[in-house]
């Protein structure tokens, strides 16, 4: 079951901008639509929608979450087998295989290279064969003074 948009949509277009599958279309200020064939159920639209107009795969209404609070993958590097399944599962390409070894030796590992593009879908965590990825809400970082 893909995500769907209800009548409460005000056509702000935030969901279409965040959708990694280009599944959402619609004119500005008009009801938007999710193409069921393209939707991958990543949930990014639901977390973005200010109107709570998105229903998830189980038809439950999604609530908006501030982007800085979206969960992000934490990888236990020691357990990572560098199979790259998480990198491939990531719809926005924010994970990559390290260009450097993890410590001594030459073993690679995957890491979150672009935390800003992460949409917190959790596909990486779900598909990791050794379950070494945890989705966690980022702890508040104290902003450094400029």
């Amino acid at each position: 079951m893909p995500h769907t948009i209800t009548e409460t949509c005000n056509g702000c277009g935030a969901c279409a901008r965040v959708c990694p599958a280009s599944a959402i279309t619609g004119e500005k200020k008009k009801l938007h639509f999710i193409d069921a064939d393209l939707c991958i159920d990543c949930g990014a639209c639901g977390k973005t929608c200010p109107q709570s107009a998105v229903l998830d795969a189980g038809d439950a209404s999604c609530t908006m979450i501030k982007r800085s609070e979206w969960p992000k993958p934490e990888i236990i590097i020691e357990s990572c087998i560098a199979c790259g399944i998480c990198i491939d599962a990531c719809p926005v390409g924010c994970l990559v295989l390290s260009e450097r070894p993890r410590k001594k030796g030459v073993d690679a590992f995957s890491y979150l290279k672009n935390p800003k593009t992460c949409i917190g879908c959790g596909f990486c965590s779900r598909e990791c064969p050794v379950d070494c990825i945890m989705m966690r809400k980022p702890e508040k970082v104290v902003a450094h003074e400029a």
Partner: peptide, 21 residues
């Protein structure tokens, strides 16, 4: 050859990583 290797290269879904950069 191993001495020239910086990091292992893994194809998709491979835990072995016989390749290298």
């Amino acid at each position: 050859i191993k001495k020239t290797e910086i990091v292992k290269y893994h194809c998709y879904s491979c835990p072995l990583g016989c390749g290298g950069i």
